[in-house]
Write a protein that binds this DNA or RNA. Structure first.
Lengths: 162, 162
DNA sequence: CAGTATTGCTTGACTTGTCAATTATTGAAT
DNA sequence: ATTCAATAATTGACAAGTCAAGCAATACTG
């Protein structure tokens, strides 16, 4: 537990908006907490890492079945995808092939074991999403994705630097 | 640019809620975009890294002036703080001392150059915060910190695993 | 169709972040 | 006071993430 936040006894000058109330800072904290939660769940349920799960989920759901598409749809670096995919291949959860119509791309498919892990893990991850959304009020649930849309867009800008 | 998101031509089964609409996934993306934005700003304005700025900001504002307090108030790992602080010391932006009443803790203070960088950089970072918040509607601005509070709390739970 | 550019993936070097073990100091307990 | 526990910082080993260079396949251009 942090010490009492309401008593500010600092003698130093303090920023207009407290640093700990910066939006960016809150995103870092939330990201950190969600990462830890995700790692715990995946470790308990499937024995895979976060990166591994992201690839498994993308392929298992059909959202993206090539490295290229995973990189596009997520923010995972191609280098990480490459290494993770080959790790999953060695672990026997995934197979790869080069399609005849474009042999640059790496086409992926889950193996039986991969599909088993996907099927077993997905419900837990969805339960988690529901638990997270369930912590919000109806009004908040309605607004949250729009908020993310606008913040992400604003994060692309550098205009505020005059 | 991602391809058209509204046409889902997947023949594979798809999760109830699309993976790319998972809350956690949006947080990862937002975190990623904000990190890139922050690094750009700091590189342009101050020539420091994100970790370095976090320490400078904590000390410069008086929010936290020891490694212990920075670790408490932020989510920065003590190992990173230690390395960053000594890097800042070598760069001449910060000095450290061991207070007589507890020689375990590392008390920090900005040097003249450190204060200069803090003073010059803070306004840009605040402008950035205002730009981010300004991308939200009034209603969204009112709700967003509460949303973060509740999501962070929910991220601590593992109860949804039955 | 030759030459050039682009795309998809891979690799290696590097930075950043995480974790466990270690040391030094302080606090608590009898 | 002596022992035992807790705290603060540091270190080293490791994992994850970033970045730039490179290779092979495809697309584009005149």
């Amino acid at each position: 537990m942090p010490s009492d936040m309401s008593s500010n006894l600092a003698h130093e000058p303090v920023a207009d908006r407290k640093l700990t109330e910066f939006l960016t800072y809150r995103v870092v904290r939330l990201h950190h907490a969600l990462n830890a939660q995700g790692m715990d769940v995946l470790n308990d349920v499937a024995g895979v890492t976060l990166s591994q799960w992201r690839v498994i989920a993308m392929v298992g759901s059909g959202t993206a079945t090539t490295s290229r598409d995973i990189a596009r749809v997520s923010v995972i670096d191609p280098a990480i995808i490459s290494r993770t995919v080959h790790g999953l291949e060695e672990a026997g959860l995934l197979t790869t092939s080069r399609p005849a119509d474009d042999r640059r791309v790496l086409q992926m498919a889950l193996t039986g074991r991969g599909r088993e892990i996907y099927a077993r893990t997905l419900p837990h991850m969805q339960a988690r999403q529901n638990a997270l959304l369930g912590a919000l009020s109806a009004a908040e649930q309605e607004m949250i994705f729009g908020i993310f849309d606008r913040l992400e867009e604003a994060a692309e800008s550098r205009d505020f630097l005059k």
